[in-house]
Amino acid sequence: MADEHYHSLIVPRHDNALTREMVTLNDAAMEYIEHAMAHNTRKSYLSDWRHFEEYCQKRNLRHLPAEPETVANYLSELAKGTADETGKKRKTSTIRRRIITIRKFHDLWMSVQRSQAKEKGISFQEMLNPADSVAVRETWKGILRKEGERVTKKRPLTAEIVTAICREIPNDLQGIRDKAILTLGYAGAFRRSELSALDVEDLEETGNGLWITIRQSKTDQTKKGERILIQYGQSNETCPIRNLRRWLKAAGIRNGAVFRRIDTSRKEVWPHRLSPQGIKDTIKRVAKKAGFDEEDFAGHSMRRGFITTTYALGHHERDIMEHTRHKSLQVFRGYIDDLKKTENNPTSNMGI
């Protein structure tokens, strides 16, 4: 089923013979467009686009196709905190994503116009995507110079922190599930979306450990699938395989979604899959319960912690990347920048 906003996307004609006509993308076209990107990415784009639409509507401005000045002013107001009634100044990372969203929606709009014009034998007047205009590019440069682009990274969940948290997790139904999420997420360097999507059918326990098939991920949108091996842990309390076994047995899960929502008042497992947001909330909750600042951690902390720990232990970058499913060495090294700076640091042994 197509997302509602995509499904009902009606785009007006540009200045040509088709100006008065409207075109609605059919179900099949929208379904393929949606599957061209990850679900969470699509949700972010839709949310961003709705915000831009509302901004334009309140100012009686056209949003599709938008004028370059409209987009440039929108970015400026996002940075200043005047784009909506919240008064919130947006981070440069958010503004960057809004530019990408506006560009993608205009690319889609122009593609439809071009196709429809060709079918009717009418010439289509090409136009510059407003997100690529000089006004927008210069506004974006100015925002970066003035506001900067500081990246705030979440704290990694290292082996020591995972162990400390596990000690504080109670042995009730929710605790058994949470411990399985934490230890499996750490050992598999999982993204929260990957953990959420796991099914029992993706698991295969052997004498060597647990083979897990990841059917789709951020770096595998075409669903080729990847298999990783997780071996047995040294401690019974933090072993991801044993914790997963305990959870599946306690929850009575034999097929379908591995991690599910729980009715804590009735102590019942629901059939609904735990969402990526639910995975993130779980990590924050168990970290807080163990005495850590929950704001320091997020779902990505498990993945960051695995990379940080294994690199510090001396594992080769290539082997870690194979396990974490990283395709880019540059992206991977972003996780270990701080560690690399401590190796053979030029300020060591300076004699002062």
Rank of each mutant, 00 (worst) to 15 (best):
A197F: 04
D202L: 10
T222W: 11
E205G: 07
K218F: 13
L229K: 11
I212D: 00
G209E: 04
T219G: 02
G209I: 01
E226N: 13
E204G: 12
I230K: 04
Q221R: 09
L229C: 05
S235C: 10
R215N: 13
I212R: 01
Q216R: 14
Q216D: 09
T222L: 14
S235D: 09
Y232W: 11
N236I: 12
I214Q: 12
Q216E: 14
E204N: 15
D199N: 14
G225Q: 08
G209D: 11
R215W: 04
L210C: 03
E205R: 10
Q231T: 15
E204H: 15
Q231W: 00
W211P: 09
S196G: 02
I214E: 03
W211A: 13
E205F: 14
Q221N: 06
G233T: 05
S196T: 01
N236R: 04
T222G: 08
D220L: 06
K218H: 13
G209H: 13
N236T: 11
G207Q: 14
Q216Y: 05
Q221A: 01
K218D: 11
E201V: 09
L195K: 06
S196K: 01
S196Y: 04
S196L: 05
I214G: 06
N236C: 12
P240K: 12
A197N: 05
R227H: 12
D202I: 13
R215V: 04
G209N: 07
